[in-house]
Write a protein that binds this DNA or RNA. Structure first.
Lengths: 247, 247
DNA sequence: CGCCAGGTTGATTTCGCTCAAGCAATGTGG
DNA sequence: CCACATTGCTTGAGCGAAATCAACCTGGCG
């Protein structure tokens, strides 16, 4: 359950991708850095691959640095009062994971778990902080990012109180389709979600049983067909219409 | 409905409080500024009093600057899909209002409405941005602040799905007591909330009718007594125990 | 093979929403 | 100054969506 498949992160010295060659750099907040600063990061960072199930850090643990997602997928979880671990958010390539606790200077409030095989860079707290203190535009990027996250979180709250589950599920699929569509054509498309039913249920704030039933309804109505973790949506527009119905 | 009671903000030149003399400065993010930078703000800012009902900005409006709350109380609202304006968050003295849209460089996603007579300083976008770009520690303060806000928002979501309304109301009162207790003694205390029932209902994500009923239950059980906008809590511990019961 | 976690399904209950009416306080115009 | 509308709050009746409880199925794994 703790971090690791094999040895610790390797200092950048072998075949690990350099920040300069990183395909996802443009999508990260770190692209605000100058060549020299980026080099500092590049030299001191650790890179390695993680496998599904690996845990980057646990809720409550002190923050020792941040992870930059080069490829793969990370899930951020929070354990609620009855001990259930609920999936709160996903981190995609280009995202920096653990930046909240780092910026706030607090222990982690979430746990980070690898969901798909991922290549991650680890940047030590001290290094990151130095960058942040000398490079205002880096902080600005993170501010922008967090402002967006905060908005999303508030919308999610509103949605959870006003919309019924059909709408919430349709909405979830709609968001997920941008990242996990593996095939599409004239309105129809197929998704390959790296999420268990429980996780999907938690994301929209319902019990697994209810998720199951709602999925059933969608299938009965021909809106979406679930088989394991792949979802086939014959008509995206029809699914999207669900969101409008009950507004 | 639009901003204003009397003229626009007065350039700082009369009796308006200087930033240097501001009692709440230590609580703001701006206390990170150097003497010289603070002077820049102080010279260019506008200060004036606002009255309940005044609107600082509307959702969707472009962001022209930020407001620093010297005294009083501001409510941040978001209109949901059916056009209801729901209270999302409160801003207290020392808080900076409108910073999210400013930092993200987007239009306002919330509206800001004055709830109690308030003395506010207005800092123009250009000035604020200059400060932010030259003063990394200012950005860091805001990052820290936003990280906290984000955490709260996520907890709120979890609470809305796991906890019943009794718990949510108890929790709300528990939070509010720190700001609005006007009298207290041996476990009992009295609150003077500047909120309508509707606003309280919106804050915990329920309908006004349900709020009314829950309040009734609390009164029947002797947990809290509501009269207009004042709330008397005979035994804070008993109220707090509600939060634990259903966890 | 048996175990177990994850998922599905059914039966039942309950909590909160909807709809609807009544009431008090405030405001407005004649 | 009173009739009237308006707004915010409360209360009731009924309904419905989702939670709960419980059983069962499935596939993976030791």
């Amino acid at each position: 359950m703790t971090a690791g498949n094999g040895g610790g992160p390797t200092r950048n010295g072998g075949k690990a991708t350099s920040c300069f060659a990183c395909q996802t750099r443009e999508r990260t907040e770190w692209c605000a850095l100058s060549h020299d600063d980026l080099k500092l990061i590049d030299d001191s960072k650790g890179v390695r691959e993680y496998l599904p199930g690996d845990v980057l850090y646990h809720q409550g643990a002190p923050c020792v640095g941040v992870f930059c997602v080069q490829s793969g997928l990370i899930g951020l979880r929070k354990v609620d009062h009855d001990g259930n671990s609920v999936l709160v958010r996903l981190a995609y390539p280009g995202d920096t994971v653990g930046y909240r606790s780092f910026l706030a200077g607090e222990e982690h409030h979430l746990s980070a778990e690898v969901l798909k095989p991922s290549m991650l860079c680890f940047i030590e707290q001290a290094t990151a902080r130095r960058m942040l203190e000398t490079n205002p535009s880096l902080g600005l990027r993170f501010l922008k990012r967090m402002a967006r996250d905060l908005d999303e979180a508030e919308d999610k709250f509103l949605e959870s109180t006003n919309s019924d589950i059909r709408v919430r599920l349709a909405h979830l699929l709609f968001v997920l389709k941008d990242r996990f569509a593996i095939e599409s054509g004239n309105g129809a498309l197929t998704l390959e979600l790296p999420l268990s039913r429980q996780d999907m249920a938690a994301m929209i704030g319902v019990r697994p049983e209810t998720m199951s039933r709602t999925i059933r309804k969608f299938e009965d109505e021909g809106l979406a067909f679930f088989s394991g973790r792949t979802v086939r949506v014959p008509d995206m527009a029809a699914l999207f219409a669900q969101i409008e119905v009950d507004s």
